[in-house]
């Protein structure tokens, strides 16, 4: 094994491989970051819909609850195939990146809706009362009072979810998206030994995820200490 490693290394560690892997790593990052950002906005919207009152909003509440409860119970891999075949059936010529992105957005919205809900719960109900008697509209209450208080509670777990998805997005390789995991299989298929192919992408995932984990920890500590804004 060692001799093979030594023999293959010069052929493996080239500018070409580096570029190929870097491109794939960027795709992984773009997929997770983009999906989680969209998911954060949609998820917060779902969390807000869940808090509406009155009969008129009942359908919206049911859809919001159903969506977040359902999509948190479907595996990412199955979700990917659902979106993949749904676009086929709809006759859309969507690139795999778009398909994977839609799938990530769906799941991220469902999970981040739960995180958004906890964020909304962290804002004391009397803040809503105060805003109401001052004639704030629902949107003004959210923008001026609730979001400025809730985001500190939402951001750390949302960032944690983003970190999870950097790793979970590996499954997007299964619909043929050229992200890091697909790149690893690709290198393996091109004849490089598994240790080099999979070892290098394991290290790349680590290099992507670990610094962000440390960053997340610092962010969390900072937010815990910061009292305002």
């Amino acid at each position: 094994m060692l001799s093979r490693l030594l023999a293959e290394s010069p052929r493996f560690f080239t500018i070409y491989t580096a570029e190929f892997l870097l491109q794939a790593a960027l795709t992984t990052l773009a997929l997770s970051a983009g999906g989680c950002l969209v998911g954060l906005v949609l998820g917060f919207g779902i969390a807000v819909l869940r808090r509406t009152r009155g009969l008129a909003w009942l359908p919206a509440r049911i859809v919001a609850i159903g969506f977040s409860e359902l999509f948190r119970r479907i595996p990412f891999l199955v979700n990917l195939f659902l979106v993949f075949y749904a676009t086929q059936v709809a006759g859309l010529e969507a690139p795999v990146f778009a398909i994977a992105m839609v799938s990530v957005c769906l799941i991220a919205s469902a999970y981040l809706a739960e995180i958004g809900r906890a964020g909304l719960d962290s804002v004391h109900p009397n803040q809503w009362d105060s805003a109401a008697v001052c004639n704030f509209t629902a949107w003004q209450t959210l923008r001026l009072v609730v979001i400025p208080q809730a985001w500190k509670v939402i951001l750390p777990p949302a960032f944690g979810f983003f970190l999870l998805f950097i790793k979970d997005s590996a499954l997007a390789s299964q619909i043929g998206l050229l992200e890091l995991t697909y790149a690893g299989r690709n290198l393996n298929n091109r004849g490089f030994m598994p240790l080099l192919s999979f070892g290098s992408i394991l290290l790349l995932y680590f290099a992507l995820s670990y610094p962000l984990t440390l960053l997340g920890r610092r962010l969390e500590a900072r937010l815990a200490n910061a009292r305002h804004r």
Partner: peptide
């Protein structure tokens, strides 16, 4: 209000 209810942010 009894609990002041000032906007905390």
């Amino acid at each position: 209000f009894q609990q002041y209810n000032l906007f905390q942010n």
